[in-house]
Simulated assay, not measured.
Amino acid sequence: MYKSVLSFLLIFAIACSAGSVFAEQARLATYHEIAQVFVDQKISNNVTASISLQTSSIQEFQIPPELDAKIRNSTDLVGIIITNENQCVLGVNDQVCVMVNIKRMEGEGGINIAQEKARKIGDSFINDINNAFKLDTKFHSVFIHYEDSANKALETSGQVSGAGTVSAVYTAQMQSTDYMFNKISSILIPTQIRGFGGFYDVAKELSKDDNSKMSFTILPRGQDSIMQLKVSEKYPHIAKEIKEIDPLKFFKVDEIKKSNYFAGGFFPLNSLIHVVVLPDSTAKIYTNTN
């Protein structure tokens, strides 16, 4: 297949007969598990494998209700990111990083005013964040985003940390992805959901690799917030050599199973695998899904 961007979407459905599948109405839950392999042959020549666990329910990701309300009621807040990515912003290297991101409105004033506003809002959140996730971050700097380098590093969308946002940045001593993922997931995700396995088990396995990184993002959206816990690993300088893609190889597992959390109904769009290829030129790529 020849395309400028090649994307495969593999949908996990409940293993049952066609008759019973069509007899049961498809449902969509708030909890989502997504696996993605991104093969970038055109720009970075890297392959990135990631597992994302996402929800808008504070019963499924149990952040303190007071913090949830504070986040949703802040008119200036764009999002909160906790990560051990190597460089969350320029000047921060090999440290755990908390970014409290706010909007920078046109006409609000110069750089100093934007920095003071971000620092004030960030300081109003950081103690709650540290207490909720057992962190000990301290103020590092305020970073004004003029382009999307932070988005590329953190693999977030432009509205999170792209141009037009300002980050109050707080840092602490670096922690391994294995340690951070287990700590934050045990705080966030109820034992029942973790015990149901699925993509959570794949994320846990991927986090054990020394080169993996993790992030937890909260994005306020009116009456609720979108929360995402993500583990990813980059395989540098190999994308152009790939002719066949085996997703399991990049996740370091023999199989990927959907979570038993969805066993009580037909949820075909809550457990997804994406394989995305950005080819260097017109190319033919094969995907091994066996």
Rank of each mutant, 00 (worst) to 15 (best):
residue 278 L to A: 10
residue 40 D to P: 06
residue 18 A to E: 15
residue 37 V to L: 12
residue 281 S to E: 08
residue 269 L to A: 14
residue 36 Q to N: 06
residue 170 Y to T: 14
residue 123 D to G: 10
residue 40 D to W: 04
residue 9 L to S: 07
residue 197 G to E: 12
residue 173 Q to E: 15
residue 192 Q to N: 08
residue 248 L to N: 11
residue 88 C to V: 15
residue 96 V to R: 05
residue 37 V to N: 00
residue 224 D to H: 00
residue 37 V to I: 07
residue 43 I to T: 10
residue 94 D to N: 13
residue 68 D to H: 01
residue 76 D to H: 07
residue 59 Q to Y: 13
residue 2 Y to G: 03
residue 55 T to K: 09
residue 76 D to I: 00
residue 187 I to K: 12
residue 33 E to R: 14
residue 108 E to C: 09
residue 245 I to Y: 01
residue 111 I to T: 14
residue 12 F to L: 05
residue 30 T to R: 07
residue 20 S to W: 15
residue 100 V to N: 09
residue 210 D to I: 06
residue 5 V to T: 11
residue 51 I to L: 08
residue 172 A to L: 09
residue 110 G to K: 11
residue 134 K to D: 15
residue 10 L to F: 04
residue 93 N to A: 14
residue 82 I to D: 03
residue 170 Y to W: 15
residue 283 A to D: 01
residue 71 I to E: 01
residue 52 S to I: 11
residue 12 F to A: 13
residue 145 H to M: 14
residue 91 G to H: 12
residue 218 I to F: 08
residue 28 L to P: 10
residue 223 Q to Y: 01
residue 254 D to L: 01
residue 99 M to K: 14
residue 35 A to Y: 01
residue 281 S to A: 14
residue 80 I to C: 06
residue 288 N to K: 06
residue 184 I to K: 12
residue 274 H to P: 01
residue 197 G to Y: 09
residue 252 K to P: 03
residue 135 L to W: 10
residue 125 F to K: 01
residue 56 S to W: 06
residue 201 D to P: 09
residue 117 K to W: 00
residue 169 V to Y: 15
residue 140 H to M: 07
residue 111 I to L: 13
residue 7 S to M: 09
residue 88 C to P: 12
residue 212 S to W: 06
residue 67 L to C: 08
residue 19 G to Y: 11
residue 144 I to R: 14
residue 102 I to A: 06
residue 144 I to W: 12
residue 49 A to V: 02
residue 268 P to F: 11
residue 117 K to I: 09
residue 80 I to N: 09
residue 75 T to F: 00
residue 261 Y to H: 10
residue 17 S to P: 11
residue 220 P to A: 00
residue 133 F to T: 08
residue 59 Q to D: 14
residue 211 N to L: 03
residue 79 G to D: 07
residue 32 H to T: 04
residue 21 V to G: 10
residue 134 K to S: 12
residue 289 T to Q: 02
residue 179 Y to I: 11
residue 258 K to Y: 13
residue 177 T to F: 04
residue 163 A to N: 08
residue 18 A to Q: 14
residue 155 E to Q: 06
residue 234 K to G: 02
residue 88 C to E: 11
residue 87 Q to R: 12
residue 262 F to N: 10
residue 191 T to N: 10
residue 58 I to Q: 15
residue 37 V to H: 03
residue 211 N to A: 10
residue 52 S to C: 03
residue 213 K to N: 07
residue 216 F to Y: 15
residue 183 K to M: 07
residue 159 Q to V: 02
residue 183 K to P: 02
residue 181 F to V: 07
residue 38 F to Y: 15
residue 273 I to W: 05
residue 15 A to W: 01
residue 206 L to D: 04
residue 71 I to M: 06
residue 78 V to C: 14
residue 58 I to W: 08
residue 20 S to I: 13
residue 241 E to L: 02
residue 69 A to W: 01
residue 267 F to T: 11
residue 92 V to G: 08
residue 237 H to T: 00
residue 255 E to A: 06
residue 195 G to R: 11
residue 160 V to K: 09
residue 33 E to C: 03
residue 285 I to G: 00
residue 27 R to P: 09
residue 159 Q to R: 10
residue 223 Q to F: 02
residue 236 P to K: 03
residue 101 N to G: 04
residue 221 R to I: 06
residue 219 L to Y: 04
residue 270 N to L: 13
residue 59 Q to P: 04
residue 49 A to H: 07
residue 272 L to W: 06
residue 149 S to D: 10
residue 133 F to V: 13
residue 271 S to D: 12
residue 264 G to V: 02
residue 206 L to E: 05
residue 26 A to T: 09
residue 8 F to Q: 03
residue 91 G to A: 13
residue 136 D to L: 01
